[in-house]
Simulated scan of single mutants.
Amino acid sequence: MIRFVFSGILLMILSFTGLNAQNSGLIAENALGLRLGGGDGFGAEISYQRQIGSPNNRLEADLGWRNDSYFDAFKLTGLYQWVWNIEGGFNWYAGVGGGLGSVEDNRYFKNGYRPNDGMFLFVAGDIGIEYNFDIPLMLSLDFRPEIGFNDYDVLNNFIPDIALGVRYQF
């Protein structure tokens, strides 16, 4: 699955090479790529950012999965972010948001039934740094603390999510 997602992103980047990612604001109007990392298990997310309002505000939507030896989870995250320029193409940002997901608990399995499987909600903060290259490429490193809510003991706590982002800007 990782190869499929990566190949799709690479194909999209190659098809948009003629576009210029620079605009009059701090950030590009759109950015699409991958966010790799995780706090409670490794995961990958397809990440989309869209500039809204002023040239230093954006929305970020991420669809991804997490897994470790205890659980597998899919989740959808939405964040509102504020971006501030440090110097040149180097920015820092902060944001708030939340999301929902589905978890499969791998710790318990009784007669074909997993008692802790189900949906969960979470709230999240976000703080990070990014660099916008002269080509339409952005690298970022962020810390996203998440607090999950569900009726089970899986993902019902604080999760410090740290990830590296690679995005194509257009």
Rank of each mutant, 00 (worst) to 15 (best):
84 W>F: 09
68 D>C: 06
26 L>N: 10
12 M>E: 13
162 I>V: 15
41 G>M: 01
18 G>K: 00
127 I>L: 14
111 N>I: 08
169 Q>F: 06
51 Q>H: 06
86 I>K: 05
119 M>S: 14
44 A>R: 08
109 F>M: 05
65 W>V: 08
154 V>G: 00
83 V>N: 12
12 M>F: 14
121 L>D: 11
31 A>R: 12
84 W>K: 09
112 G>P: 08
103 V>T: 10
157 N>I: 04
40 D>I: 01
111 N>A: 13
53 G>I: 02
57 N>T: 11
81 Q>Y: 02
55 P>E: 07
137 L>S: 02
9 I>W: 10
105 D>L: 00
47 S>P: 03
85 N>P: 10
87 E>W: 11
165 G>T: 02
104 E>C: 03
22 Q>R: 12
72 D>W: 13
66 R>V: 01
79 L>S: 05
17 T>H: 05
140 S>K: 04
167 R>H: 15
52 I>P: 14
153 D>K: 01
107 R>C: 05
84 W>R: 09
170 F>W: 07
48 Y>N: 05
24 S>V: 07
158 F>K: 02
90 F>L: 14
105 D>A: 00
98 G>W: 11
125 G>L: 04
61 A>W: 12
94 A>M: 14
1 M>A: 09
19 L>G: 05
107 R>T: 00
71 F>Y: 15
16 F>H: 08
71 F>L: 03
44 A>I: 15
121 L>C: 06
121 L>W: 15
27 I>T: 09
12 M>C: 09
21 A>Y: 00
150 N>Q: 01
72 D>R: 14
138 M>F: 01
80 Y>P: 02
69 S>K: 06
112 G>L: 01
114 R>I: 08
7 S>L: 13
56 N>Y: 11
42 F>I: 10
165 G>I: 00
54 S>Q: 13
98 G>S: 07
109 F>T: 07
114 R>L: 07
162 I>M: 14
113 Y>F: 15
56 N>T: 03
114 R>E: 09
5 V>S: 09
102 S>R: 05
114 R>Q: 14
13 I>Q: 12
81 Q>H: 10
164 L>E: 01
160 P>G: 03
31 A>F: 13
25 G>R: 02
148 G>M: 02
